[in-house]
Design a protein around this nucleic acid. Structure first.
Lengths: 197, 197
DNA sequence: GTAATAATCTAACGAACGTTCGACAAATTA
DNA sequence: TAATTTGTCGAACGTTCGTTAGATTATTAC
């Protein structure tokens, strides 16, 4: 705690503000579409000042990515913290995942979810390791599920995460809610779809 | 047919060559990352010559998109043409879809699948209408399936396409094949996963 | 109060970008 | 063969980009 009552230094505040506006602009206009000048203007400073806090545009991208990833990680972990029933745990996690993507921090949608195909190796590895850590949650949750014989747990995980995350591309807030999407998808998966089975 | 035995005019050949190299470069480096100079060099011509065939970079993008979309459309339609059993039809279509994305025209992966969030309205509407036409195939196939009571066919379609398409982000050709991915995912969905159901 | 450090500023550099212009060559048509 | 269209070219225009250098102001430490 500082003398004026604030908890962050001026520098840390500026850093957070830059990450926040960059988050918004990267998502709205894409990484290439959002210039450092745009970001600086939105953060109400000069372009050069941004470089006092981040040494390059790519490092700023990573900061945005990391913030979004850790937030989603926390969100899902918090959601399942109290539950014990395996099916309830996975449903809660799915709802948190979908809500986090669709509602909560819209800015991180494309960034956290999309693979950084066109970005430099240094960032790619960091993003992938963050994603891996995130997927570990689901690996654990799915391990605890009592499944039909013959179900490949890896395919199941990829199916769940894929189906949920794909909602990024068709979600319309007038029609669906993140929670209902997660519930419906999980229910389809859980019970199967074939009338004859 | 022309005098020299070729079936295309010189212009049409050049156009096709440009689309082909642009397809590759857009996918490898992204739309912004691939410059008109890169594309022209790969097509073995001067940048200015590209503008004789396409009036802008965005129109070239659309041409790439359209080619990939129509090819995938044809691929899926051809695959289901002979089949009559509803489950066999959807499985065949899923395999064709996944194979088309993962194997066949790698260049169109991100382009056809990803929403053109950051692209101008004129292109966005054309891409969306192409995607809609493609999804109509799956709407028809799913309408014909004998499903358990209470299954929402729209959610089911989005789940199937989402789970399959998400494989773009984790597919490793050393480990999976497009056909096995499609089969496994469909089998999970068909029978359900809960041991108790 | 004074020195040191942290943060922001103005100004600009060099490179890359999409695109255009006008001349020139190749192919087609009459 | 002459006229016309089709396709390609070299050269450049104007703009925007990420980034940097150096001066200047605010904040902190002694």
């Amino acid at each position: 705690m500082r003398g004026d009552g604030s908890v962050l230094t001026k520098g840390a505040q500026a850093r957070a503000r830059i990450i926040s506006v960059a988050e918004t602009l990267f998502n709205k206009q894409g990484f290439d579409g959002a210039s450092m000048r745009d970001i600086a203007a939105a953060a109400e400073m000069q372009p050069a000042s941004v470089y006092y806090h981040f040494e390059s545009k790519e490092e700023l991208l990573w900061a945005v990515w990391e913030k979004g990833g850790l937030e989603l990680l926390d969100r899902v972990n918090d959601a399942i913290a109290g539950k014990t029933d395996p099916w309830q745990r996975i449903e809660t996690a799915c709802i948190a995942h979908t809500t986090g993507l669709l509602d909560w921090r819209r800015a991180n949608q494309a960034l956290f979810v999309m693979p950084p195909w066109h970005y430099p190796e240094s960032i790619k590895t960091r993003v992938i390791s963050l994603r891996d850590e995130y997927e570990k949650i689901f690996i654990g949750l799915i391990d605890d599920l009592p499944l039909r014989k013959g179900i490949d747990r890896r395919y199941l995980r990829l199916t769940i995460i894929g189906a949920l995350s794909w909602s990024l591309f068709w979600f319309k807030k007038e029609r669906d809610t993140p929670a209902s999407i997660a519930k419906q998808i999980l229910s389809i998966l859980r019970g199967g779809i074939d009338a004859a089975v």
